[in-house]
Amino acid sequence: MRLGGVLVYLRTMALFVLAWYVGSLLVPSKLLLPSPLAVAAALRDTGLNGELFGNALISLVRLLASLLAAAAIAVPLGLLMGRSRLWNDLLELPVEMLRPIAGIAWIPLALYLFGIGHRLPLFIMFYTAFFPLLVGTAAGAAAVDKRLIAAARTMGLSGPSIMRRVIVPAALPAILVSARLAVAASWTAVVAAELVGAPNGLGYAIEYYRSMLSTPTVMAFIVTIGVLGFLTDKGLRQLSKVLTPWAQTGAAR
């Protein structure tokens, strides 16, 4: 990142922290709104004793694992749905019925099925990431320029080759955009899933310190989720630049 960009971020954050600080002076109870200084202290403490990184790492690994699992199924299925009338007819109705249901709505059932542990948050995040990936991939595959397919056909490529050499690369920008949506949605689901169904992770830590009435520490973990959410999105955008340099805004055609 360029230095100018960093300065813009810092300026925005400084204003935000200042407003927060003033707000915390006006709110009488430290329990309701702790000052940024208290949160910074909590970040330092949990950072030093390893709690912050340990829980963040667990949540991050769960998120990436569930994202990869969701992509492994949703992308091929989305390609089929986008290119084949038959597959689309077959899957459209169940997909459109399951998609509006929030992942966290499955928590009660998932608790019976999986109990408390890794599997419940993994399942909830998998569910949350699955539909943006599926729908985004299907839309991307359906929108592939017909002339590119025609060009490949006139060069004698078979159906599977065209899928691999034309449809997949042409739909890749759309797939990467849907991955960004999936990750953002997964971060919102991670807390809820771990709040209830996991013995560790950022969501678990938030719930634990809530019960201890330590709002600065709760806020410290909330801030961590925000930072991780930002960084994972940044990482995916960087990945899009590397994988699809030809499809960057402005230069694309």
């Binding site: 002339r147 590119l148 025609a150 060009a151 056909r153 006139t154 060069m155 004698g156 699809t244």
Partner: peptide, 17 residues
């Protein structure tokens, strides 16, 4: 279609990637 007949399209249809 067949590879013995090559086509050049009006708007080129190049693979952008």
């Amino acid at each position: 279609p067949g590879a013995e007949r090559g086509v050049m399209f009006q708007d080129y249809a190049l693979f952008p990637w």
